[in-house]
Simulated assay, not measured.
Amino acid sequence: MTSLAALTALCMPPAVVPPAPDWSQIEDTLGMPLPQDYKDLITTYGPGQFGGFITLCQPYVPSEWADLTGPMPARLRQQIEEVRQAARDPWQLPQSPENLFAMGVTGNGDYLFWVTQPADSPDRWIVAVNEALRASWFAYNGSVTEFLVSVLSGTTSVPMFPADLLDHTPAFIPSTLESSTPAAAARTSVSTRAIRAWANANGYDLPERGRIPSEIIDAWKRENPS
């Protein structure tokens, strides 16, 4: 059984999905090839959330925080390095920043990356999970589809994921990319996490939970223009 077949057995794809994107054009835009399993995954499921927790980035979507082809992957590499260097005891990255390409996010603001080595063999890329721009990393030696199957079946436990992730039967929740959809809520969560990480790295006393003061949001926007 292929990893995609195993995933569809766990999480039924929606009956209707958007037309498959032009992957050649997307790869030209990115300047790199993409793993075939990811392309098959997006073509099969379209936009949405796995297990009510994991959202994969998509090409050419309105939200910059979910846009695989936008500035988000490069911005996250920069932010991770800024947060790391600002720490009292800078922590080690599992890979050089240039080898990390963001391709997913969780409901807690954790990020999923491809480790893009070897650069010309995307089907050999593995998955790295970062805990919301902090020091904690988890590496999975397999594709993103294999990662989803392993996590959603309970075979792999990611330390930064919630303990109750599998309390309910895994499912795929499809979404449109309009502002009133779950995708927009996921975008807001990611953006909030990024603002908190930036604020803490820049000397603001900001608690982990609760409302972010408007002056901090304004300062973040000035430093991170769209």
Rank of each mutant, 00 (worst) to 15 (best):
V149N: 11
N224Q: 09
T55F: 11
Q79L: 14
I126A: 01
P73V: 01
V129I: 09
L34F: 10
Q117D: 07
S143E: 09
F101W: 03
A194D: 11
N202K: 01
R88S: 07
S63L: 15
A15D: 14
R134F: 13
Y111H: 13
N141F: 08
A87S: 14
R211C: 10
V144E: 09
K221G: 07
N99V: 02
V61E: 10
P90E: 00
V105M: 09
E223R: 06
D22N: 15
F161M: 06
E81Q: 06
R124H: 13
Q85E: 08
S157F: 12
N108F: 14
D89C: 06
G51I: 00
G51Y: 07
K221H: 11
A119T: 01
I26H: 03
S179A: 11
M1V: 10
P122M: 02
T181A: 11
T43D: 08
A201T: 00
S96A: 14
E81W: 01
I80L: 15
D218P: 10
A219F: 08
Q36A: 09
A197P: 15
V17S: 11
F50Q: 07
P97Q: 00
I212G: 01
A102S: 06
L165Y: 08
Q85W: 05
A86G: 03
P13D: 05
I217L: 11
G154Y: 12
T155E: 14
L166I: 04
S180D: 15
G109H: 09
P213C: 08
S189C: 12
T176E: 12
P62N: 10
L68M: 12
A87I: 02
C11M: 09
A184P: 14
K221M: 11
L76H: 08
G52I: 06
D123Y: 04
T116A: 00
D67G: 02
G48W: 12
K39F: 09
N200D: 05
I195C: 13
S226G: 08
L93M: 05
